[in-house]
Design a protein around this nucleic acid. Sequence first.
DNA 1: TCCATATAGATGTAATTGCATCTATATGGA
DNA 2: TCCATATAGATGCAATTACATCTATATGGA
Lengths: 151, 151
Amino acid sequence: MTKKSPSPEAVKTWGRLMSVSRQLVEKTEDALKAGGLPPLAWYDVLHELAEAGEGGLRPFELIDRVLLAQYNVSRLLARLEADGLVEKLPVSDDGRGQTVRITPAGRETRRRLWAVYGKAISELMGDKLSAKELEMLAGLLGRLRDAPIME
Amino acid sequence: MTKKSPSPEAVKTWGRLMSVSRQLVEKTEDALKAGGLPPLAWYDVLHELAEAGEGGLRPFELIDRVLLAQYNVSRLLARLEADGLVEKLPVSDDGRGQTVRITPAGRETRRRLWAVYGKAISELMGDKLSAKELEMLAGLLGRLRDAPIME
DNA sequence: TCCATATAGATGTAATTGCATCTATATGGA
DNA sequence: TCCATATAGATGCAATTACATCTATATGGA
């Protein structure tokens, strides 16, 4: 059983992790807003769907990729569909389900999101640490992950 | 001027940072909910107010400590006050302002939040990395911070 | 076949957040 | 003193998120 009270180092590092990640997200969201673009979550979904290609993805597949709750994905997809960025297709072998596919407009939006998002990653992360340090950081963070799936 | 396209290492590390921090927050929030306790943001505010002592804090002072928007702090304080966890006092030398002070009930709630929160930090962070690794992680994260204020 | 249970996805409603703006008090000149 | 501007904090309203639940289809026995 775990000691209840965390070490000072753990508390300090936890605090850093929380404030840094929030700052980075906030700055990136600000940059997107400044560019008149939709939020980060849209990028994540469009990215996964773009990777998935013409076959598209079932919403439940999206859910474990993007780390959003089921109802969030459902509503986000509805917004994306309303904007014409994705389309929903019935799936033949499961009457409950659907396949979600990115549209050309969706690809274009993803591209424009990436122009800003990628730049933010460069400036906020790539420019601050060397490649070696980035690898080390990724490694340490990996140790904190849930299921340490091998890679 | 920064290169627009980020390095693969930066992208990988960015993704890790985002998913890990979200997982940790989510698990901690889940633990708090499971214990019938209010969310993490309440802890942050109560913690700052407890540190501030009897003198309390002005809301604007709270804002730069907790990294929340002004309107969020305003509303969070209203909820805390409604729950009797803080009290608002007029401040003599500035008619616009107020001082927010934690109540005994607020200290008690903070204590109960910490019992769960601290345990989460131990389990999710302290148990996964050595003290040296924690220091290294904190150091790398510190390099990503906004204004690298010395310490 | 029939039923109990599980899974896919949507949705009503309440709570929270974001954005813009508002009120009230301060402050620093002219 | 008066006014323009700044600052402290609150709030109306719209969008998003959380929670619970719902509908519809699948699936695996009995």
